[in-house]
Design a protein around this nucleic acid. Sequence first.
DNA 1: CACGCATACTCGTATAGACGAGTGGGCGAG
DNA 2: CTCGCCCACTCGTCTATACGAGTATGCGTG
Lengths: 262, 262
Amino acid sequence: MAAIPSGVLGALDSTSDRAVFRQIADQLREAIDKGRFKEGAKLPSESELVEHYGVSRMTVRNALSVLQGEGLVHSEHGKGVFVRPRPPVRRLASDRFARRHRDQGKAAFTVEAEAAGSHPEVDSLEVKEERPTQDVSARLGGPRRVLARRRRYLLDGRPVEFATSYLPLDIARGTPIAEPNPGPGGIYARLEELGHRLDHFEEEIRARMPTPGEVKFLRLAAGVPVIHLIRTAFDTEGRPVEVCDTVMAADAYVLAYQLPAT
Amino acid sequence: MAAIPSGVLGALDSTSDRAVFRQIADQLREAIDKGRFKEGAKLPSESELVEHYGVSRMTVRNALSVLQGEGLVHSEHGKGVFVRPRPPVRRLASDRFARRHRDQGKAAFTVEAEAAGSHPEVDSLEVKEERPTQDVSARLGGPRRVLARRRRYLLDGRPVEFATSYLPLDIARGTPIAEPNPGPGGIYARLEELGHRLDHFEEEIRARMPTPGEVKFLRLAAGVPVIHLIRTAFDTEGRPVEVCDTVMAADAYVLAYQLPAT
DNA sequence: CACGCATACTCGTATAGACGAGTGGGCGAG
DNA sequence: CTCGCCCACTCGTCTATACGAGTATGCGTG
């Protein structure tokens, strides 16, 4: 068992009334913040920390679990505990649905990811008619059934986003929108071709911890929240024509908006 | 020690290879989701769960810590573990900085909170000149020193938001902006009076787990992320005149934006 | 009645030990 | 040399125990 390099981690203050596992967590956090452990680097193993601090293993694990909850580190069974690297971030600009971005042959996600040098994928496509939740129904003006389009987006093999679009059946049924691949420009381009000229979007943003299902589906590390975005698209007559419910891995996204000062 | 009402929690599946503490967490989560434990209600105590499942206390605590990490429950020393109630949510609309909202005598936060029937407070006011971080300096066009205005917002006694505004000294020094109370309409009203007519704002939104300092200052429960919002205000000449860095308790906010479909 | 204390409950912290399972490197057999 | 096994190391799960500290309740004393 290798010793911990001296100077990287200090000693415990037995006179302090701060819990031992918190003191250990504090020291590890400070060492990470100061770059003494770099991104992706392996922390000392649990048994090394037990040795160094002269405490029991549960105390060390408790300290490490604090850092995991903060999203600072992640553990890999059989390997060790590592400083969590910050993944490449996808920036969502508020003009991403502007009409001028809609006339390419590929989906916006694909174009943008390739421009950033990443490898984009879309999977888990599911398109079916179903009963909407109360919330979705209310946002769409109360339809009893809707078309739901589900898909998951991946960047360089990592799932980053899970999105479901809901459209009223009288708009979507029997159109390319009900096909797995709606064609160039996505469903917004199709909606406009069908005579539903888009006027504006409303977006609601929340952040919360993921459900176990989201953890699994997005392969989220401990301590990574999700951004929950609900977008409603309105046509020029003020009718809501689509609701898109999106759950994003928070460490993979920055949302950017531009607001007029009017 | 009271027994757990039958039917609320099931038994463990010893044939499953799912860890015992996860099975216990699953059952508690399901019971909460199905409303068998209501918001604010007390869960069975650790020793009751130990009794019910026939496992050791650490296993039960492990299960409870899973639910805490998900933000589903919170524990109170000496009292018990409770289903975390959803706090009242403050909705931030994208037109909240519109000029028409600026002519009242009170700050926007106060007006809005009182309209919603809440009791608003602002504290920890600090106004001083300082060296900006590299990021803030870059956003403001590179000043070496800035005026920083820090304040914390509370709703019904609960801290919900911590904000710092940064302004270039050549704009703010010696003006009402450098006073603790900048007067009706806030600093945006003052900026316009000083000839910096506002054109638009840019907002960047991230979500992440809070730092220990943020947990303390916002009195955050375990499993509550923060929304980190950075707003830059631009005048009609395209000059950035203010950067506002805001950290919000994610369970207290919904951000709403309206985007044109142009 | 009012106050204070004892007590029984709650969760928080910490120890010591055990076994299991994933990973990777070294060594020996072919 | 290559393949496969074994072993050492990693973290994951679980038990049993102990003491400390915060909270609420009730009872007994003044």
